[in-house]
């Protein structure tokens, strides 16, 4: 399945929120949709969901305009909330039925997703009686109960403890493996980096960067090397290239790529032990800041 946004434009009054964004997302692996607050992510998602109409541009699925009656979309909004005073199972069935399931289908699906989330015992509980983290899991269950073809998760990890975050990571990977199209929006870059091979960064209503994270990282200058050593200060002081220490590592800027061999020879010749030598790659966090820090 391929979701494509083509030249989406959207204004609210005088304020232009989307300046003709284009994006292609394929099923098989989660896609990271990133951007600072107010960059236009929620507006884009609402256009995909059909809640808002774009001023121009279109949303297609496998080349055809999206038919939301046939393509089920599950959405986990950043602003969480269900019915605090209602039974969990009742709510999940309701959201399943709203998306076109029969009550029986919705009940079966709800039961199975609750079990997957280790929440089966709370089916008859009222939402308000659960802890914040468990409420978060119920919200995820409401997103997935209708077995959507497209899953859009906005800040899914916020409020989860590390154990539940790990469970969520597993579930997101399972969804991708099942062939669902998963769009993930988060400011927690470590999760995006771990889960999403491909990303797009939205800034001020424009896509400022998109592609595979690996390729993006490889596009950075590869003459900068990282050396892990027990005595970084000594190595940095004696190495014959421009260097500095950072986070207990030595960073070396080589004049040419071909100087890598010379670096390796040098390191094997010194008495200080060296644990690892690798090309320096920026983290996704670094890349994100670099591409979005100019946004007003």
């Amino acid at each position: 399945m391929e979701l494509k946004l083509s030249n989406l434009e959207k204004s609210f009054g005088e304020k232009k929120v989307l300046h003709g964004i284009s994006l292609k997302v394929e099923s098989g692996s989660p896609f990271g949709f990133l951007g600072r607050n107010g960059a236009g992510k929620t507006t884009s998602i609402r256009i995909i969901m059909g809640v808002l109409l774009a001023d121009s541009g279109e949303v297609t699925i496998d080349g055809k305009p999206i038919d939301r009656s046939k393509t089920r979309i599950g959405y986990l909004p950043e602003e969480r909330g269900l019915y605090p005073k209602k039974e969990i199972m009742e709510q999940l069935i309701y959201f399943g039925v709203l998306k076109g399931m029969s009550r029986r289908e919705a009940a079966e699906s709800a039961k199975s997703i609750l079990q997957r989330l280790d929440m089966g015992q709370y089916a008859k509980s009222r939402l308000e009686t659960l802890s914040k983290g468990n409420q978060q899991k119920i919200q995820l269950a409401a997103t997935l109960v209708a077995k959507p073809d497209i899953v859009i998760l906005d800040e899914p990890f916020s409020g989860l403890d590390p154990v539940n975050a790990l469970l969520l990571k597993d579930i997101i990977e399972e969804l991708a493996l099942q062939g669902k199209l998963v769009l993930l929006s988060s400011h927690q870059m470590n999760y995006i980096e771990e889960l999403c091979p491909e990303i797009a960064i939205l800034n001020g209503g424009n896509i400022v960067l998109s592609g595979r994270i690996r390729d993006i990282k490889r596009s950075y200058d590869r003459r900068r090397m990282v050396i892990d050593t027990p005595d970084p200060q000594l190595v940095a002081n004696t190495i014959p290239w421009r260097s500095e220490t950072s986070n207990g590592q030595v960073l070396v800027d080589l004049p040419e790529l071909s100087d890598r061999e010379a670096l390796l020879k040098y390191l094997s010749s010194i008495s200080t032990s060296v644990d690892c030598v690798k090309v320096f790659e920026p983290t996704l966090n670094d890349i994100f800041i670099q591409y979005t820090e100019d946004q007003v």
Binding site: Y75, P77, R80, G81, L82, P84, L98, K99, Q139, A146
Partner: peptide
């Protein structure tokens, strides 16, 4: 209440 509890976010995208 639906708006205040943010259930609306999910409702409006479901129906």
């Amino acid at each position: 209440i639906e708006k205040g509890s943010r259930a609306m976010e999910l409702l409006i995208t479901s129906a």
